[in-house]
Amino acid sequence: MFKDLDPILHSQLRLAIMSLLIGVQEADFTFIKEKTNATAGNLSVQVQKLKEAGYIDVNKQFKDNYPQTTCKITQQGITAFEAYVKALQEYLQVGKTK
């Protein structure tokens, strides 16, 4: 049914992460955790999957002696997100005309 939809993005948490990152220049792991209400462990796994797909850049550094992870959407991620939204719209359009 959803074969045309990008399997990397067609997951609630990964889609939520991408939707947050598309609207900001970059965001901390804590910001994404707070907005998605996800657990740190699950979020960490999904962030890693998006990174491996080349959809986001992840930068780990230390801020005031505490580790800080910053995420930023890549151009490849923007293209994939736009294609995903277009596919969704086409699917809904088909649904309406039926």
Binding site: F2, L5, P7, H10, S11, Q12, L13, R14, L15, A16, S19, T36, N37, A38, T39, N42, Q46, V85, L88, Y91, L92, G95
Partner: peptide, 18 residues
Amino acid sequence: MLSENQEFDPQQSLRLID
């Protein structure tokens, strides 16, 4: 809480994005 659930329809996807 959001999960890695793949079973959600396009309308739910758009709502989540929004």
